[in-house]
Computed example of a mutant assay.
Amino acid sequence: MRANIAIRMAWRLVWQIIMSSVLAVATCYLCLIILERMTRGDAGSRSFLISVYRVFGQTPIMLFGCFVLFVVYMVLLNWRRYSYYDQLSHSVEHLAKGNFDDVVPVKQNNELTVLSENMNLLVEELKRSLDEERRTEQTKNELITNVSHDLRTPLTSIIGYLGLIEQDRYRDEVELRYYVQIAYAKAERLRGLIHDLFEYTRMRHDAVPLNEKSFNLVEMMNQLLVHHRLALENAKMTGKLITNASELIIMGDPDKLVRVFENLLSNAITYGYAGGKVEIYLNLHNEAAVVDIVNYGEAIPSAALPHLFDRFYRVDKSRTENSGGSGLGLAIAKGFVERHGGTISVTSDVDGTNFRVRLPLS
């Protein structure tokens, strides 16, 4: 690009020099012809014109006149460019004051056009960087606010119940054990929040290594249902794996993917208990394993679906507080799935809520 611009500028300069020289010489000779024709006029003005013609026709004067005309023509040929320089200067000065919504005018078809286009690209990139910085600052502020709120709630309960114990404000040992049990449960919730927060932060910065190996996804889902059998029974629900494959070999980190499916299954049990069952569909489609975890409880509002995988987003804040969720589980699940080259999505209506995970086969 730089070589092309330099060549264009050189050719343009050569062309302007040639054109200005030709026009200057042609103008001088035209003036001489006009003067020579005018000397043939009436006798009153002929003597004056003859003297002018003789002076102007001398070689040094002729050369000086050609040089003056050459300079004039060079200025005229570059006048549009000089005015464009002035516009560019004012535009850059305007942008330097922070008016990034304006653009540098793109005119003509020369090296200044390329400069203007590059300056506009620079302004667009600067605007994008500033917007990204603002979003990052907003995200940081939201993160601090949400973390402060989520950590403060269980911590307040812990301090409150331990304060009652420290002040001997309990009737008997049964009430004492009840206070200790509540403080312990809140401490467990606090530890879970801190663990999720650190894991989400590490995942965002790709600091969580993947210990990849080949494993059978069908076997993993069967084991997952076995491990959650008690939780399903307590919620008066049934769990079922529906698949037409005996094995689907995946290359990935089984510990990270187990956490993904545990989170989805736990959410299905917690929020879909009214439907009475959870169904896991596992199939092969276009060289990928597709896992659908479906519950038949209350539908998720359509306005909440696009934000469901955002960190700290909660459809029902009070319900999530009671169930001990951190608001980071789905965001972490999405991060782990995408690091395995897969996708995760959700659909929800009156017929059921379906979380779909798509993972490439080994």
Rank of each mutant, 00 (worst) to 15 (best):
I182N: 12
I182Q: 09
A183N: 10
Y184H: 11
A187K: 00
R191W: 06
R191V: 07
L193Y: 09
L193C: 04
I194V: 13
H195N: 10
D196T: 05
L197R: 03
F198N: 13
E199N: 13
Y200G: 00
Y200C: 00
R202E: 10
R202C: 15
R202A: 15
M203P: 00
R204P: 04
H205P: 00
H205Q: 14
H205V: 03
H205F: 09
D206S: 05
A207L: 14
V208F: 07
V208T: 14
V208E: 15
L210K: 02
L210G: 00
N211D: 11
N211K: 09
N211V: 08
N211C: 04
N211A: 11
N211H: 14
E212M: 05
K213N: 12
K213H: 12
K213S: 15
K213R: 14
K213L: 02
S214A: 13
L217Y: 05
L217M: 13
Q223A: 06
L224D: 13
L225P: 04
V226R: 13
H227D: 14
A231K: 15
E233F: 07
K236D: 08
K236H: 15
M237L: 06
T238H: 08
N244V: 05
A245D: 13
A245T: 09
S246G: 14
E247S: 09
I250C: 08
M251A: 12
M251W: 07
G252R: 03
G252S: 12
G252A: 14
G252P: 04
P254Y: 01
P254D: 09
D255R: 14
K256Y: 00
L257M: 11
R259Q: 13
F261A: 01
